[in-house]
C-alpha cells in the first residue's frame, strides 16, 4: 500500500508530462475555406532562389542580447543555402553552407559552440523552405485559426497557422508532440517575403528577430555560392 502511494506522484507527473506533450488536435476545417488554404500553406516560404539581407536581433537565455546582419542565399528548389552572420561593422562571425550536408566555413567564438551550426540550419529550413513530404493535412486549431499540418521525416510535424490576414506562425513539434521551435511571420512585404520574422527555440532557449533589409531574386537556380 505504501509503495503504491509512493508511486502516485510519479504517475501523476508522467501523466501530466504526457498531457503537456500531446500534439494539438486538429478540428475539421470549413470546406469553404479549404480551397483557399493551398495558397496559405505555401505563403511564407521562398518560391525561388533569393538573396536576403536581414538585421538580426538575438536574445539568449539569461537575457543576453545582440544584433548582427545576416545574409542568406537560398534555393528552395534544391533546398540549399549559404548564410553569413556579421557584426554591424562587417566582421564575419559565422558562415555556413547547407544542402545534403552542412559545411562550416567560419565560426568565431561563441558561434563555434557544438550544435550552433545545425540549429542555425534548422532555423533557416524551418522559416524559408516549405516542409518536405506529402501534402499537408488541413484543419483548424481549437481557437479556430486554419492550420496546414506537415508530417516531418523522422517523426513529428510542423503546423503552419494563419493567425490573421497579415500574420502566420510555424510550429515545429517533435515525435513526442512537444513544441521545439516556432517562427512567427509578423508581416510581409509587397513581394510576399516575410519582412518581420521571429524564431523562438525552446531548448536551448533563444529568440531571433529578423527584419528584412534587402532582397534580390536570383536567376541561376541551384547556385547559392
Amino acid at each position: 500500500m505504501n509503495a503504491t502511494l509512493r508511486l502516485v506522484p510519479i504517475l501523476a507527473i508522467v501523466l501530466l508530462a504526457g498531457a503537456c506533450a500531446a500534439p494539438p488536435a486538429l478540428r475539421p476545417l470549413d470546406p469553404a475555406l479549404a480551397s483557399s488554404m493551398s495558397e496559405v500553406c505555401g505563403r511564407p516560404f521562398l518560391k525561388g532562389p533569393q538573396r536576403l539581407v536581414h538585421s538580426l536581433e538575438f536574445e539568449l537565455a539569461g537575457g543576453r542580447k545582440g544584433v548582427a546582419v545576416g545574409v542568406l542565399v537560398a534555393d528552395p528548389g534544391t533546398r540549399t543555402f549559404r548564410t553569413v552572420l556579421m557584426t554591424l561593422e562587417g566582421w564575419v562571425l559565422f558562415d555556413i553552407e547547407g544542402g545534403e550536408s552542412l559545411t562550416v566555413h567560419r565560426a568565431v567564438p561563441p558561434f563555434d559552440a557544438p550544435g550552433f551550426a545545425p540549429r542555425m540550419a534548422q532555423d533557416i529550413r524551418l522559416a524559408f523552405f516549405s516542409p518536405k513530404g506529402a501534402s499537408p493535412v488541413l484543419g483548424r486549431e481549437e481557437k479556430g485559426s486554419p492550420v496546414c499540418r506537415f508530417d516531418r521525416e523522422g517523426g513529428g510535424f510542423t503546423d503552419l497557422v494563419r493567425i490573421d490576414a497579415g500574420r502566420m506562425a510555424l510550429r515545429l513539434y517533435d515525435a513526442g508532440g512537444e513544441l521545439r521551435k516556432s517562427a512567427t511571420f509578423r508581416s510581409f512585404n509587397n513581394a510576399g517575403l516575410p519582412s518581420l520574422l521571429e524564431i523562438r527555440s525552446e531548448d536551448p532557449s533563444y529568440t531571433l528577430r529578423l527584419t528584412l533589409l534587402e532582397s534580390e531574386v536570383l536567376a541561376a537556380e541551384g547556385d547559392v555560392r
Binding site: 543576453r64 542580447k65 545582440g66 544584433v67 548582427a68 557584426t87 561593422e89 566582421w91 562571425l93 561563441p110
Partner: peptide
Amino acid sequence: YLKEGSAWREDAGVSLSAMQTV
C-alpha cells in the same frame, strides 16, 4: 547602443569586447 523603436538600448553583445580592441 542600439535603437529599438524610438529608444536607445545599451547592448553588451558578444562583439563588444572585440570592438574595444578594434
